[in-house]
């Protein structure tokens, strides 16, 4: 069950974010774990999980790792860590498209070679789809479809 709020730091919500919120609302059953997403800019990283007023951590990949360790998702294996880190790095490299493209190729090559866990699928899908949004490159589409097919 996911709720969305927009912080005053966001002047205008991008179209992709609006579409994402609509898609989530369509899929949401209205029960289960409650998640509140606050769209906000000007943070040191693009994703912060606030567990309580004094505890938070950064990164979508780290959220997936956390859920794995809490038993919500399949446990991550040692070999997954490198892929989770590569996915994180892919988002961080958005200012250097050439390096980002090289890393996307490497990430796709690696996930084709090893059996992916649920955590890796979630994290790499998100990183590659954001890469696609930014670059309009359709070369990631096959991998995105493969991941969707596994779920």
């Amino acid at each position: 069950y996911v709720n969305f709020f927009t912080h005053s730091s966001v002047a205008q919500l991008p179209e992709a974010a609006k579409e994402f919120a609509e898609e989530i609302s369509r899929l949401s059953t209205g029960d289960g774990q409650k998640v509140t997403v606050i769209w906000k800019t000007g943070m040191p990283a693009n994703f912060e999980v606030i567990l309580n007023p004094t505890t938070s951590f950064w990164g979508e990949g780290n959220f997936i790792r956390y859920l794995s360790r809490m038993g919500v998702l399949d446990n991550t294996q040692d070999t997954d860590d490198m892929l989770l880190d590569m996915s994180h790095q892919l988002l961080v490299l958005s200012d250097d498209r050439k390096e980002q493209t090289k890393l996307a190729d490497r990430l796709m090559g690696t996930i084709r070679k090893q059996k992916a866990s649920q955590s890796v699928d979630y994290t790499t899908y998100s990183a590659l789809r954001n890469f696609r949004n930014a670059t309009k490159s359709d070369k990631v589409d096959v991998v995105l479809q493969d991941i969707m097919g596994r779920l």
Binding site: A17, F20, V37, W39, N46, F47, S126, R129
Partner: peptide
């Protein structure tokens, strides 16, 4: 597990992993 997760997200990147978790 906490009752609620509060996540702050920069809308320049979309947290598609949440979408997959609902599917």
């Amino acid at each position: 597990l906490p009752d609620e997760y509060v996540i702050a997200v920069d809308p320049a990147t979309i947290p598609y992993s949440l979408l997959l978790m609902l599917q």
